[in-house]
Simulated assay, not measured.
Amino acid sequence: MTSQDAQTEARPARDKARPVVRRESSRKTRETIIQAALAEFSSKGYDGGRVDEIALRAGINKNVLYHHFGNKDDLFTAVLEYTYDAIRSRQKDLQIRGMDPVDGMRRLVVFTGQVWVRFPEFQRILASENLNQGKHIVTSATIREMYNPLLDTIRGLLQRGQQEGLFRENIDAVDLYISITSLTAHYVSNRYTFEAIFGQRLMTAQRIKQRLDHAAEMVLRYLRVDAAPSAAR
């Protein structure tokens, strides 16, 4: 076999590998852009964020950015999807699904609070979207689906807690999750004003643990059978 024949035989293998390499390169470029956009939008919001600055942060040409994300709105939606996916993956609800109802609910509160503490930029992204009345999130085909497993987990914990005589009836899973988020996220998003008003450092490890334990205890006391509201007289 001549060297030319060997090169001819090797060419199909190289040609077959090229699409894989291109896809991997494209995936990494998208991830780089999303991380750059997360930094830009979390510091300046959707309205203040600049595509030019995002391209600069990512170290790419702006045309490359528009190749992956058609416009600023599409890019912000992708950042929202990344943010919600990161939140959901860190809540670890699938790990608590089979736990004792009380322990599972306590862990859900703590896991949720730890997300806000560790990733305060997520709150800033969501705050920006709420200022824009949720105009991007409604266009996402995936974000709403991310929360179906979480609601199933909460409903499962509630049902088993009720069957064991631990939790009271008529608890709405969506209301409960909104309360969990409020008890944990508000503490982090307002820490600067709270620290100035009360003269306390709120983000020390001890203070964060105290807050998350406090939030978990409030949720569990609300769920207890003896916490059911009295019938109207």
Rank of each mutant, 00 (worst) to 15 (best):
S179Y: 03
T193N: 08
D213F: 02
T184R: 03
S189N: 06
A196M: 05
R211K: 15
R224Q: 12
L157F: 07
E217Y: 03
D152F: 03
N190S: 13
I180T: 02
F198R: 09
G165K: 08
R160H: 12
M203R: 12
R155E: 14
I180H: 01
I154R: 00
R155D: 14
L158Y: 03
R191Q: 08
H186G: 08
S182W: 13
H214R: 02
R155T: 15
E169H: 15
R211M: 10
G165F: 06
M203A: 12
I154A: 01
Q206S: 14
N170L: 09
L202E: 02
T204V: 06
Y177C: 05
V225D: 11
H186N: 09
A215S: 13
R160F: 02
H186E: 08
L223Q: 04
M203P: 02
L212C: 02
D152L: 04
T193S: 11
D172G: 04
F198D: 12
L183A: 07
D175Y: 13
Q163P: 00
R211N: 06
F198W: 11
Y222N: 11
E164G: 11
A185F: 01
Q162A: 15
A216D: 10
A215P: 03
T184Y: 05
L202I: 08
F167E: 00
R160M: 09
L176E: 02
S182P: 06
I178V: 12
R191E: 05
D213H: 07
R168P: 03
M218T: 04
T193A: 10
H214L: 01
E195K: 12
R160E: 10
R211Y: 11
E169W: 09
Q163N: 12
I171F: 06
K209T: 13
